[in-house]
Design a protein around this nucleic acid. Structure first.
Lengths: 223, 223, 223, 223
DNA sequence: AATGAATGAGCCTTCATTCAT
DNA sequence: CATGAATGAAGGCTCATTCAT
């Protein structure tokens, strides 16, 4: 007779197996790369039987997808509350931008390998997976664009195409993540790099004196 | 005895075969993706026998690598002469940046699929291929950094970490390439997008009035 | 959960599969020759799937090697106890030689094809395999040499280079095995052939009267 | 117009090509082993085109066979005259045996690698090739048997099965060739080894005193 | 006659997937 | 439910052989 407790423990054991498969898959994927990973690597790493894999996942893409979904979920959760309090002035805006960037960097530091792996491999796995990555990046781009839009409306950012700039900011982040991971910028502390690019985003690299003449709507400046 | 004409025509035939394999490989890679492509796809597309492939290439990676080398070579050739005449003032600098970006965009437009393919797949193919892509991007980043450095010395760019900014600019370019390819920015013309990001690079998105207070050396501006 | 019985029966099934592959390999090797045999012949003969072969053996040489190791092991086991009781006089020595030769012949009769196959093919398969055969033959040669040495010391064999003679005896055995297998000596019974060569080994074919003059230490004989 | 000289030189060139293919094949076979040798190795070694091979030989076995035929022919030529003068007494018989063995050894020394190669590989190449080797060895065995028969008839060899002993002698030769080639017997000079085995053949290793009692027809000895 | 580019049959090997226990 | 033995489809690669030049 199957008691309720028995059922529960069965359930729990099953879930534990599933988790160890997921964890094993993550480790193997990171070490070997998605395309070179074979199912038997995963089950060996997880210490379960070959057939067990198929009780939980359809195939390699399925387990990858599951892993990725979890990651994206955690990722977006971190920024879910961000839209709650919008900056009220330029100072706050810059501070919020700096904070958001640092938060992003922190998340990246914690998940360094997984992030890089996902960014690099997702586009080559399947259209579905590529779309998932794309959707995530676009959400971030849209978020940045939304803040920028707000700043423009509030008058503490100049008028610009927020869609383009939003994507550009994501591009900066992605490239710096890659470069940072490869150990370039060795001399600069991460915080310095972040400030550097926030400055870039706010002020560009142009000489301040130049812009007086170059920006059409320049009359506001030389008051 | 082998006549000279015989040898020449053999040589030519061989080269034609090689080229048709390369072209076929490019087409198949783009359509199917590197990892899902099998050699028999390529030879079928090229209309040659299976064994013929191995007369020219060691394996799939070899043909990919050959394709990529050709592309990188053409790419760098386009920018080889750029360092010849450095901009002499801010105006020229901005014009040169705009021109370079447009040139890059034009090259991309011509090789749209190959570029995207290389950017996406290279990191997952092999460490060697990843290194090749990385090297190319770093060269561009260094080039941008070098120009920026020159501008700073000339006094028409503000002082900043040229290494970081160089990479950031590459990031912007990569992300916009991706986004553009997916048909976003549908409403904006390519030229507008380019101007937008060159402006971003020069001036940031910060409100010009803001920087008066935020940039320490701001007094130079409102004299 | 895996029960102990499950594990046991799995183990047994696996071993049975392995054995049927080994047996099939032996049959196919003998019929087709090592070099012309292909893996698919073996699996077809064994009645298992193509992939199954690779669960047990690395390649063709591996299965051959396994087969050979088993054979050598059985072979040497037969002669392991031989050194226990050394002959105490010439009579015993001759009897022991006859017995050993007959035993060898019996083993050969039982494994006729495998022996011939191994003798013929091993040298062409790989240096490792050639060395294995060589080692086995040298062990037999050394064994024969050792007995001869003992006989010389005991005074019932004339002094000679035991190393050379040991190898010569192996040579005789090998050649007769080959010839016998081909059905020559059809008229003579195996036992007669064996006696013939034991006599050859003991007395040579020279006329007894001749040796009186030819052997330097001949004075012992015509007392 | 094709002159006679033109024809001749064409003929000669063709023959030279054929010879260089044969020589190249021999070198490659010895270095690589028959089974691992591929046609392209041979043509590369010979410095001719791939197709040229097929103008002279049907396939790999054909060229091997040609090589072997030449070798056997030369081999047998060396012993063709031997039957001319048969030994007239035991002394001559022994001397002739020694001489023949030394001649054999000399031939072997000159063609060491080719001989070993042929002995080892022939049985695994095809039944036809195995038969060729077998036939050659049997001819030698028959030759030895014939001499022995003659000696028996003349009364300077004891009565024995000449067929068996003939093969046994070949066996001794083959085994010593193998062993000698591997560098064993390092201490003994070749001539000593040869004398050793001729003695073995004539007298066996048995103690001369023993045979008085053991050979049934022993009374003839101590007359 | 000689060449060597091209070919494709054929073998090896891997690995996702099934299924009896 | 978990297992792992067994499978065979699929793809890589080699190399003997052909044939246009």
């Amino acid at each position: 007779m199957v008691t309720k407790t028995r059922k529960t423990s069965d359930q729990e054991r099953k879930e534990r197996t599933r988790q160890s498969l997921l964890a094993a898959a993550a480790r193997v994927f990171l070490g070997t790369g998605y395309h070179k990973t074979v199912i038997s690597d995963i089950v060996a790493e997880a210490g379960v039987g070959q057939g067990t894999f198929y009780r939980f996942f359809r195939d390699k893409e399925d387990v990858f997808s599951t892993l990725v979904d979890g990651f994206i979920e955690r990722m977006l959760a971190q920024f879910a509350d961000m839209s709650a309090n919008l900056p009220k002035n330029a100072e706050e805006y810059r501070a919020a931008s700096l904070a958001a960037t640092k938060k992003l960097a922190a998340i990246f530091e914690e998940n360094r390998e997984l992030v890089l792996f996902f960014l690099r491999e997702a586009p080559t796995i399947s259209p579905a997976m590529a779309a998932k990555l794309d959707a995530m990046l676009n959400r971030f781009a849209a978020l940045a664009g939304f803040y920028l839009q707000h700043a423009i409306l509030m008058g503490f950012a100049r008028h610009c195409n927020t869609e383009v700039v939003g994507q550009a900011l994501i591009g900066i982040a992605l490239r710096l993540v890659e470069t940072w991971a490869k150990g370039r910028f060795a001399t600069s502390a991460l915080d310095r790099v972040i400030e550097e690019i926030v400055d870039l985003a706010f002020f560009g690299f142009g000489d301040p004196r130049m812009r007086l003449t170059m920006v059409p709507s320049g009359e506001g400046e030389n008051r």
